[in-house]
Amino acid sequence: TLFEALYDYEARTEDDLSFHKGEKFQILNSSEGDWWEARSLTTGETGYIPSIYLAPV
């Protein structure tokens, strides 16, 4: 399942991933609670993103 960003997000740590509204992600690991490891389909970068900023596509 792909997810789309509902809002912009600016990374706060080196493990976080910055993204823009409308960016799409492949989720790599969603077992860490509210922060999911994801790969951006726009940039190819991976990192942790807040799941509350996402909606399934």
Rank of each mutant, 00 (worst) to 15 (best):
T1H: 12
T1S: 11
T1D: 12
T1F: 12
T1C: 13
L2C: 09
L2W: 09
L2I: 15
L2D: 04
L2Q: 06
F3D: 00
F3Q: 03
F3M: 08
F3R: 03
F3I: 01
E4D: 02
E4F: 13
E4W: 08
E4K: 06
E4M: 12
A5L: 06
A5G: 03
A5W: 01
A5D: 00
A5K: 00
A5E: 00
A5Q: 00
L6C: 08
L6D: 01
L6I: 10
Y7A: 12
Y7R: 09
Y7D: 09
Y7T: 09
Y7M: 11
D8C: 08
D8P: 07
D8H: 06
D8R: 04
D8Y: 05
Y9W: 08
Y9N: 02
Y9T: 01
Y9H: 07
Y9Q: 02
Y9C: 05
E10F: 10
E10H: 11
E10G: 06
E10A: 11
A11I: 02
A11M: 04
A11L: 02
A11S: 13
R12N: 10
R12E: 11
R12F: 09
T13C: 15
T13M: 12
T13S: 14
T13Y: 15
T13F: 15
E14A: 14
E14M: 12
E14F: 09
E14Q: 13
D15L: 14
D15N: 15
D16C: 14
D16M: 14
D16S: 14
D16L: 10
D16E: 15
D16K: 15
L17D: 00
L17M: 15
L17R: 03
L17V: 06
S18K: 05
S18T: 10
S18F: 03
S18H: 07
S18R: 04
S18Y: 03
F19G: 01
F19S: 02
F19D: 00
F19T: 05
F19N: 00
F19C: 07
F19I: 09
F19M: 13
H20Q: 11
H20V: 13
H20E: 09
H20W: 07
H20M: 11
K21H: 06
K21C: 08
K21D: 01
K21R: 10
G22Q: 02
G22C: 05
G22E: 03
G22V: 00
G22D: 03
E23P: 00
E23G: 02
E23V: 02
K24F: 12
K24T: 08
K24C: 08
K24L: 15
K24A: 06
K24V: 15
F25A: 00
F25G: 00
F25Q: 00
F25C: 01
Q26N: 07
Q26S: 07
Q26M: 12
I27E: 01
L28N: 04
L28R: 03
L28F: 06
L28D: 03
L28Q: 04
L28V: 09
N29D: 13
N29E: 07
N29C: 09
N29A: 09
S30Q: 13
S30G: 10
S30C: 13
S30L: 09
S30F: 15
S30P: 09
S30A: 13
S30D: 13
S31R: 10
S31F: 10
S31M: 13
S31H: 10
E32L: 14
E32N: 15
E32V: 11
E32Q: 15
E32K: 14
E32M: 14
E32F: 12
G33Q: 12
G33Y: 08
G33I: 11
D34G: 11
D34Q: 10
D34L: 12
D34A: 10
D34V: 09
D34I: 12
D34M: 12
D34H: 09
W35H: 08
W35G: 03
W36D: 01
W36F: 06
W36P: 01
W36E: 01
W36N: 01
E37N: 08
E37Y: 15
E37V: 15
A38V: 15
A38T: 02
A38F: 02
A38E: 00
A38Y: 03
A38D: 00
R39Q: 09
R39D: 01
R39A: 05
S40Y: 02
S40H: 07
S40Q: 05
S40G: 02
L41P: 02
L41S: 03
L41M: 12
L41T: 07
L41F: 06
L41V: 09
L41K: 04
T42E: 15
T42W: 11
T42R: 13
T42C: 11
T42N: 09
T42S: 12
T42F: 09
T42D: 11
T42A: 11
T43S: 11
T43A: 02
T43W: 02
T43M: 01
G44M: 07
G44V: 01
G44T: 04
G44D: 06
G44H: 07
E45W: 08
E45H: 12
E45D: 09
E45K: 15
E45V: 10
T46D: 03
T46V: 14
T46C: 08
T46E: 09
G47L: 05
G47T: 03
G47R: 04
G47V: 05
G47W: 04
G47A: 04
Y48A: 05
Y48R: 14
Y48F: 13
Y48K: 13
I49L: 08
I49C: 05
P50Q: 13
P50M: 13
P50N: 15
P50Y: 13
S51N: 07
S51Y: 09
S51D: 03
S51K: 14
S51L: 06
I52H: 14
I52R: 14
I52C: 15
I52A: 15
I52V: 11
Y53M: 14
Y53R: 05
Y53A: 15
Y53S: 10
Y53C: 10
L54K: 00
L54Y: 01
L54G: 01
A55Q: 14
A55E: 10
A55Y: 09
P56T: 05
P56I: 08
P56V: 09
P56F: 06
P56H: 06
P56N: 05
V57H: 06
V57P: 04
V57R: 03
V57C: 08
V57A: 08
V57W: 08
